[in-house]
Simulated assay, not measured.
Amino acid sequence: MNSVLNEYKTIAIQGLWKNNPGLVQLLGLCPLLAVTATLTNALGLGLATMAVLIGSNVLVSLVKFYVPREIRIPVFVMIIAALVTCVQLLINAYAYGLYLSLGIFLPLIVTNCVIIGRAEAFASRNSLLKSAFDGFMMGLGFLLVLAVLGASREILGQGTLFEGADLLLGDWAASLTIHLWQVDTNFLLAMLPPGAFIGMGFLIAFKNIVDKQIADRSTTPAVTETVTRARITKVS
């Protein structure tokens, strides 16, 4: 039981932090940098990507024994393309404003290397439940990066948060918009793709700093123990 829980814990840590698609693998950067001008767009794209990730992992895990290795990549791409089409049609039907806002980057989820990479590296080699959980955690990790980047760019660029939330959640969500401060002119650097590159740089730097501190803390006890043993041996 503990071994199973440890496996799922490892999958969660890999998706959220150690192997995060946006911060470590640096995959899917084109839509990540292009549509994260607002938190609403970031959440919309992140949820769509997560849905495709989970669906593709589940389907690939189900058909992995029936697909010859020679044609597995084309089959995986076909599965992903079908799922992206379904998600695109659903967003078009129930969140048309968001569909227009995301534009070409919604169908471009098909070319997102995160999805085909997880299908090939994980789902084609693991059970259904593990594959579904991996898709959820990788999608959640990607969604969190999108959300943090989108929120920071929206706040710096136009002083709001959840601007256009009605595009994602419906007309009732228009009241969710938070005006943090009044700006006469938007801060264009934050709103345009160069600002997204700078924001991603800060996020990656923050992760590297945290990883370094964790590594230093884990090595300090070992170094202390080694020094102590050396002193004891010398005294003896």
Rank of each mutant, 00 (worst) to 15 (best):
V24Y: 02
V4K: 11
E70K: 12
I178V: 13
G150V: 07
S3Q: 06
L192M: 11
A196G: 09
V110Y: 05
L176H: 06
L5H: 07
I155D: 10
I214Y: 10
I116K: 00
E225D: 13
F142R: 07
A34I: 04
F136S: 12
L62T: 04
A215S: 11
I232Y: 11
V58T: 03
G195M: 06
F65D: 15
L53I: 01
V58G: 10
V75Q: 02
A165K: 01
M50P: 02
L27Y: 01
L180D: 12
I214D: 12
L98E: 02
V67N: 00
S101H: 09
V67W: 00
E154W: 05
L27I: 09
G195I: 06
L192N: 11
I104L: 10
T220Y: 14
L23V: 02
E70Y: 06
A93N: 04
F197A: 09
M138Q: 13
N126Y: 06
P194Y: 00
K9Y: 09
K212W: 13
G117I: 05
S101Y: 07
A147V: 12
E225H: 09
S131K: 04
V148W: 12
S61T: 03
P107D: 09
G150N: 07
I13P: 12
R231A: 15
F76K: 03
Y99K: 06
R229A: 15
T220L: 04
S152W: 05
E120S: 01
L27T: 08
F162H: 00
D134C: 03
A81M: 02
I155E: 07
L53H: 02
V67I: 00
G139D: 00
R118A: 05
F162Q: 00
G164P: 04
V227D: 14
Y8M: 09
V60R: 01
I178Q: 06
I214E: 07
A95N: 14
L62M: 13
T111G: 04
M1W: 04
N2W: 05
A190Y: 00
D171E: 12
N57K: 02
V52Y: 00
S236C: 08
E163S: 15
G150K: 01
K234T: 15
I214Q: 13
L169T: 05
I232Q: 12
H179D: 15
G150A: 02
I204V: 05
C113M: 10
F142M: 15
T160L: 09
G55K: 01
I232L: 15
T10Q: 15
R69W: 07
K18A: 10
R72V: 15
P21W: 00
V84C: 01
L108W: 05
A93Y: 06
K207M: 08
A119C: 13
I71P: 14
L83P: 01
L27F: 04
P68R: 02
D134W: 00
L188P: 09
T111D: 10
V227A: 12
N112S: 08
S218H: 04
L5T: 08
I54W: 06
R69S: 14
K18C: 08
E70F: 13
Q158W: 03
G117P: 05
D166L: 09
G135D: 00
L129M: 11
V52S: 07
V227G: 11
S124W: 01
Y66R: 11
L39E: 06
I73H: 05
T85Y: 06
A222D: 14
S127P: 02
T219F: 08
L169Y: 10
A174W: 11
W181A: 15
F202Q: 07
R153D: 14
L83E: 05
